[in-house]
């Protein structure tokens, strides 16, 4: 197996040590160890049920890991609610189904957390919100409701909503899987810009063009384990594991 440590040896942003996660008797994560450096972009691939989502949901404690350690920017996730809060403030998450708040306008979706968590003044938060919406290229939709937007626009709003908390890490859980094909590109472009700006990112995605262009490393998971880790060119030219080859032949 290739070394799960990042190549450039800087102080890691995310560290997982021997993490296990069970749902009842089903083991979703099996002794996962992983370290993600600052500004690194990691793309996670693997068949459904392989534990990809569980992996990133453990990083902001939407799931509680059962064994091992999870450390984000030096803060270890324990039962201590303050640590959980600190990690969530620094970690943005984008979901497959967008999960925008349908009863709030686009702008209110974006400024909710800055207002309620960071206690920012309204005018300041709105300025920040408009900046974030401009960054994802939909400032003109600010006063509409999520239901009035297309899927691609909604997902870009979701990205803006996470960015408004100025996180150090962004987690993406299959951000383009629920989108019509013609809308995937607009979301991937925003994510590429984000990666270029130096954001630390873990992305679950089977968009291989995106992975090839942006990923520093690709992780292949199966049955709750990390099967193979390596830079994109390694994956696309000569993957070592048999299961990786089989999987890649299925999706490419």
């Amino acid at each position: 197996m290739t070394d799960p440590q990042p190549a450039d040896g800087g102080k890691p942003m995310i560290v997982l040590e021997n993490v296990d996660k069970f749902f009842g008797t089903f083991q979703a994560l099996d002794d996962i160890s992983l370290s993600v450096a600052k500004k690194e972009v990691v793309v996670v691939i693997g068949p459904s049920g392989s534990g990809k989502s569980t992996l990133i949901r453990c990083i902001n404690r939407l799931e509680k890991h059962d064994a091992g350690r999870v450390i984000v920017d030096g803060v270890e996730l324990t039962d201590d609610i303050r640590n959980i809060h600190e990690v969530r403030m620094e970690t943005g998450m984008v979901f497959q189904q967008f999960n925008l708040f349908p009863h709030l306008t686009v702008l209110d979706n974006v400024i909710l957390a800055p207002r309620e968590v960071r206690h920012m003044a309204k005018a300041e938060a709105e300025e920040l919100g408009m900046k974030m919406l401009t960054r994802v290229r939909i400032p003109e939709q600010a006063r509409k409701f999520p239901g009035q937007l297309s899927g691609g626009q909604q997902q870009r709003v979701a990205i803006a909503r996470s960015l408004a908390m100025q996180p150090k890490v962004m987690l993406f859980d299959e951000p383009t899987s629920a989108l019509d094909p013609e809308m995937i590109k607009e979301v991937l472009e925003v994510m590429e810009e984000l990666a270029a700006s130096g954001m630390t990112m873990i992305v679950i995605s089977h968009e291989m063009g995106f992975a090839r262009a942006v990923a520093d490393r690709i992780i292949f998971m199966a049955d709750g384990q990390i099967v193979e880790v390596g830079p994109p060119e390694h994956f696309f030219t000569n993957p070592t594991e048999e299961r990786t080859k089989t999987f890649l032949s299925q999706i490419l």
């Binding site: 939407l62 809060h85 969530r88 943005g92 979901f95 999960n99 909710l112 957390a113 968590v117």
Partner: peptide
Amino acid sequence: PRGQSEAAQSLGLPGLKITRLI
């Protein structure tokens, strides 16, 4: 949907505010 409170949690909102606002 569960995703609503998960999204609010991931933004760092505390439980009471998730209930009240979302």
